[in-house]
Design a protein around this nucleic acid. Structure first.
Lengths: 127, 127
DNA sequence: CTAGTTGCAAAGCATTTGCCTGTGG
DNA sequence: CCACAGGCAAATGCTTTGCAACTAG
């Protein structure tokens, strides 16, 4: 059964407030503003439970540790953009067509991941 | 400068003989048949050099540890297909258009990864 | 109350690095 | 020769786990 602890709430709040996939460390940083004593281990344990119960969705990019986002923000089919400067990951809407063309004869296509790389708005603007 | 050590040769041979992307541990296992004393650290160091000089290409799929393949097998821009049944990874030729449409205003697009999932020819055919 | 949660520290793993020995050219 | 490469072990960095203390219900 799921207890309503302040840590638990702080972690959900951090994910909710971000609006983009966060790493466990980023979640810790965000959630600590509400619960000073929050521990990284607790973040991992809580994430595990949230993922198991479907409230949170892991976002895995090639060659990188997993990030996490609220399921509500990931309800629809979407992909991700990673900024090579600040390393943040952003949700993208929409998708592309023509993926079937890439599949060799005899293969059955069931799903796909698309990750775009570049620099985000903040990092692109000459501040 | 690149020395022609037996370890170096054994690692290249292992990659060459496999014909598919290998994990560092798989490379160690394969190359040890030629050089018994070969060390995992050496595999990592050698891979790093081979990647740096462009002889080897890392293959990173979401949520999985990196694998490595000889560049000759990955010459052109390409993407990957991972079979969810046998877990094999296949090279795909070609690419898709319309990726720019996904990018939010102000973002700069520099590159992308596409991974398709499904079942390969062997796993799709009712054997 | 009391079972589920948390904090802390230690344990795990995969990968990297320091350092001294070995060897290719 | 001798600088680069390799072996070994210790050091990382990220994630998980053991355990005693704590707290939500």
């Amino acid at each position: 059964m799921q207890r309503q602890t302040q840590q638990h709430r702080a972690i959900r709040a951090a994910l909710d407030g971000a609006g983009r996939p966060l790493s466990p460390q980023e979640i810790l940083d965000g959630a600590r503003q509400r619960v000073r004593t929050l521990n990284l281990a607790t973040v991992y344990r809580t994430l595990k439970r949230l993922v198991a119960e479907g409230a949170v969705q892991p976002v895995e990019l090639p060659g990188e540790p997993p990030r996490y986002e609220l399921r509500s923000a990931a309800e629809r089919h979407h992909h991700h953009f990673r900024c090579r400067r600040c390393n943040s990951v952003f949700d993208l809407q929409g998708c592309v067509e023509g993926l079937k063309r890439l599949v060799p004869r005899g293969f059955r296509l069931r799903g796909h991941d698309i990750v775009l790389y570049g620099s985000c708005a903040a990092c692109s603007s000459p501040s």
